[in-house]
């Protein structure tokens, strides 16, 4: 088992500062969805992690804690996530932004 970044939508969608993805070394790993958050009646969309691309470096945690000061990201064992986004289930939207279907992760 290994650690991946997990973003708390309730905290992130209060501001959705979009800082963490600018610092994640892995491309297209922290993505944005305008609906996440808004579906829950929160102000903004939220960042989320494509867990199959996350290498577990925790740089995003440092950025969210120390630069954004929002403390929305924690490192979590991948098999402890009730559901997560993976690249195959992510759609890029014509209007910009993405949409993901989060589902339980199957870890062999």
């Amino acid at each position: 088992m290994y650690l991946v970044a997990d973003i708390n939508v309730d905290i992130c969608a209060a501001t959705s500062c979009k800082l963490c993805t600018q610092y994640c070394p892995e491309a297209n790993t922290i993505l944005y969805s305008d609906n996440l958050g808004k579906e829950k009646g929160l102000k903004y969309g939220s960042a989320y992690v494509a867990v199959d691309r996350c290498k577990g470096c925790a740089q995003c945690v440092w950025v969210c804690d120390n630069m954004a000061k929002h403390h929305a990201i924690t490192m979590t064992m991948i098999d402890q996530l009730p559901k997560a986004a993976i690249t195959d289930r992510i759609t890029y939207l014509d209007s910009g932004g993405t949409k993901a279907i989060a589902a339980p992760v199957e870890v062999a």
Binding site: E26, A27, T98
Partner: peptide, 20 residues
């Protein structure tokens, strides 16, 4: 750069070390 996370990038998935 401010649109990062909203479009498909031309580079992804490579073997460089985590956090490099």
């Amino acid at each position: 750069v401010s649109q990062m996370g909203s479009f498909k990038e031309i580079l992804e998935e490579h073997p460089m070390c985590a956090g490099c």
